[in-house]
């Protein structure tokens, strides 16, 4: 299949790391990166039920002359055919529309804050809104280019969490990398999760693809986070719930994103992944 990943290029060393991450992701799962070099400091993404304006800081607009050159160099370095996105539609003359029909989107943890502040900071509000409304998974790149050798799925056992697992399986299939599943046992025991898989389509394939299923007791959350391989891509679901809670995972999601250095691939509430 032809999967595409949209990358918004930031022409700084930090942006380069993020872009390398995107390229590595695409190369591993055989997707095609599409690069958008912003010409204005803002753009709009129209999702099925929301219009999100993304305000970029000035580092995105830095030295537009060298930006394209840098992108081409990096494409060349990773030996991927370059492809650029040129916005066709404009809501206002300085406000291009970026379609929301890509298969993946790569974001740093924050698009509008100064990169110096981010180090390993919180996911910014714009990125949160993208995740909340996106119909595609969002790749939150680690601050430094970090190749990964395996895939780790955080699976909570709900129908929505199945999305994340399916996405993990899909990536494992297309990349050929091993897949680990991490589950924190809350209220239920291990057999519940195994039954859950049994009730899905192709349970045998799912079982075959999973290298190991790690179960942790409820209090062992920190232990689980530590035991996730440092060189793996973490796939997890985040689902908006109500107006107050940003994510259903709430504190857990916050903790994961602020303590784990790995690349995160997040599926939002409107994502639906089919095998």
């Amino acid at each position: 299949m032809n999967y595409t990943l949209l990358h918004i290029f930031r022409n700084t060393p930090f942006g380069r790391e993020t872009f390398l991450q995107s390229l590595y992701f695409c190369k591993t799962i055989h997707a095609y990166p599409v690069v958008y070099i912003p010409k204005t400091d803002k753009f709009l993404m129209y999702f099925p039920n929301d219009a999100v304006q993304i305000d970029l800081d000035n580092s995105y607009l830095f030295s537009p002359k060298t930006a394209k050159k840098h992108v081409l160099e990096l494409f060349d370095y990773m030996q991927i055919a370059p492809q650029f996105y040129m916005p066709k539609n404009f809501t206002a003359s300085s406000l291009p529309d970026i379609p929301a029909n890509f298969d993946y989107l790569c974001c740093p943890r924050s698009v509008s804050d100064l990169s110096s502040k981010i180090g390993l900071g919180h996911i910014g509000p714009k990125v949160r809104r993208i995740i909340k409304h996106a119909t595609f998974p969002v790749l939150i790149a680690s601050p430094v280019f970090k190749p990964w050798k395996s895939i780790s799925v955080f699976f909570g056992g709900s129908v929505n969490a199945m999305n994340a697992l399916r996405l993990g399986l899909k990536l494992a299939l297309s990349s050929g990398l091993p897949l680990d599943v991490f589950t924190l046992l809350e209220k239920k025991d291990e057999s519940y999760y195994e039954n859950f898989i049994e009730n899905q389509d192709f349970p045998e394939t799912i079982k075959q693809l999973i290298r190991q299923w790690h179960f942790y007791k409820k209090s062992q959350f920190d232990k689980m986070l530590y035991e996730v391989p440092h060189d793996s891509l973490i796939v997890l679901g985040a689902y908006g719930h109500g107006i107050i809670k940003e994510f259903l995972l709430g504190s857990k999601m916050e903790k994961i994103q602020s303590t784990v250095m790995n690349n995160l691939l997040i599926t939002g509430p409107y994502c639906s992944i089919s095998l």
Binding site: D41, K42, L44, Y46, N49, D50, A51, V52, Q53, D55, N89, T91, A92, S93, S94, L95
Partner: peptide, 26 residues
Amino acid sequence: AREGAGHGVPEVIYSVSRYGGLLRFR
């Protein structure tokens, strides 16, 4: 607010015809 200048009516018409009237809260 980080919105472009202009009177905004074309923006509304554009959004109505292309994106089902999605407008930003701001």
